[in-house]
Every structure is written in structure tokens, then in C-alpha cells.
Amino acid sequence: MTWRNTLVGALAFAVVASAAVVLPAWLMSLATIALANALVVLGLIILWRAGLVPFGQALFYATGAYTVALLGRFTDLRDAVLFVIAAALLSGILAYLVGLLLARYRDIFFAMLSLAMSMILYGVLVKTETLGSTDGFHVESATFFGSALHGRTAELVLFWFVLAWCALAALVVSVYFRSVAGSLAVPVREREIRLEFLGISVNRLIHLKLIIAGTLAGIGGALAALAVEHVDPTMAYWTTSGGFVFVTILAGAGSIAAAFIGSFLFELVRSVAVDLMPGTWQIILGTVLLLTILFLPGGLGSVVTVGRRRLGIKTP
């Protein structure tokens, strides 16, 4: 079954990539940001499956974004691939360090401690007047394999670039989910003491999850910075983290595809809501979340699972 899922996934990415050629520009830039954010959501899903909800994932998101912005500002490096790899490394290392502490906590303590960590970064960034404080600063345009692009080509290439990272992340995460460490998520959530009795260190399992999720958030932040071409401390603020949790609830932790579709739908719903009801768009957004929680407690991803059950198809 697994090779089939991978094949379908690859096909889906290929379809989206080729559909980009005919997408209107506004929808493509919306999708670019949505996909970048989806990587953060993908990381949250990893933690969510183990029963952990961090309210501070913006810490790594902002770290990734600021890595790109600072490299552009203080060095002559402009290569997009290099930018993202640097961001992934730095946020991964940060996640490792933060994880030394965070991995020992669960439930609300985990959520609050992760929130506190991200607010420390927020506080530092706001205090740093040389980096524009809350106004943030401009991110230099990146080059792709040595060439600087403009206009429609730039938008298209950036979209493909983000999509490629998403495909890579989806592949890595699906491999991880099938590994022993990945499949122990539910036992961690349900009864971690049993795992300890089996001789497995739960803290180490969670630490690894934190590093993967942090790295994904860092890559997401880096890609978002490349797309928006501006960074500001709000990227580290707790409402940004809350937004990612919101999308995770909307998407559900059921599947990898749900992260991407959920994130895209969230941005689309928001954008359409702002268009239809400029002064009261939050009502639409809130209603969508409420309805999701009421009728699809497993998130959008559960539509597929529920549908299969009704049709009598066995879930892989």
C-alpha cells in the first residue's frame, strides 16, 4: 500500500506544479504562502499525534525567516537553496537546544513553556531597533541557481521551489511515520509509561519529534520570508503560533495531505472572507472553525477516512 500512497502523492504534487502555469497570479502567491505555512502545520501534526500541542512553533518559524533575512542583509549570499538549508540547520539546532528542556514536559506545561520560548525571541526582536523593531525589514530577493528572476517567472519559480520543499518534507515525514519512532506516537499519547517499561525513552522520542517539527517550521519560515520579502517580529508572536494550531485543527492530524490542503483552504477562506465582509471577516473564519470542530472533529483529513468507512473501503 505504501508505495501506492507515495506514487499518488508524487502525482498530486506534479499536477499542482503543472496547474501553476495557468493559475492567476494572486492565487499563486496565496498558495505559495499557504504551502510555506503548511510545513509548520506538518510539524505540528507530528507533535499532535503524540498528544503535544505547542503554542510556540512561531519560534522556529521566525528563526527560519530571520536567518534568510539576516543572511541577505549582512552577507553577499543570495542563493535560495542555501538560504533554506541554513534556515533549516539553524532552527534544527535551536529545536535541539530548546528540546533538551521541552521534551520533559507534557500537556499544558509543554504548551506554555513553548509559548514562553517564542515570546523571548519576540521580546528580543522588538528591542532590536537596528533591525527595525516591530516594523521589521526587507528581505533581499534570492537567486535561483545563480539567476535573479523578475515578474511572473519569479512568482512561478518561487512557487515550484516552495512546492519542491513541500514534496521533500512530505516524503521525509511519511517515511518517519512508517518508522518505529514515528509509529510510537499514539502509545506516547495514550500511555507513555508502558513504553518506558518496554525500554524506550519517551523523552528521546519526543525530542526527535521536536527537532523534526522545529526544522520543518524553520524551512516554512524561510520560504515565507522569500515569498513575502519582509520579516517582522510578529512572526515570533504567540498569535502566529495560535494560527498554526488553528490550521492544524482545521486540517486534522489524520494525513500528510491534510496539512497542505488545510493550510491552503485556511488562506483561501480568509482571503475570500476579507473580500466579502471587510469589517467582519473574522465571523466567517470563526464559523468555519466551529463547524469543523462540531462536524469534523478529526479535521478535514478525516473526510477521506469517514468516506472510506461509509463506502466499506478498508483504510490502509
Binding site: 502567491s29 496565496l30 513575502v228 519582509h230
Partner: peptide
Amino acid sequence: VDEAGSTAQVVTEYRNLVQR
């Protein structure tokens, strides 16, 4: 159009106005 939201959202709304 509402300016509330993250910078990414503001830029997206700006692009929507111009391109859409």
C-alpha cells in the same frame, strides 16, 4: 480591505487588489 493580520496576509491582500 482590512489591514489586520500578519505581514504575509497584508502583502497577500495587496497582491489580491492589484492582480485579482
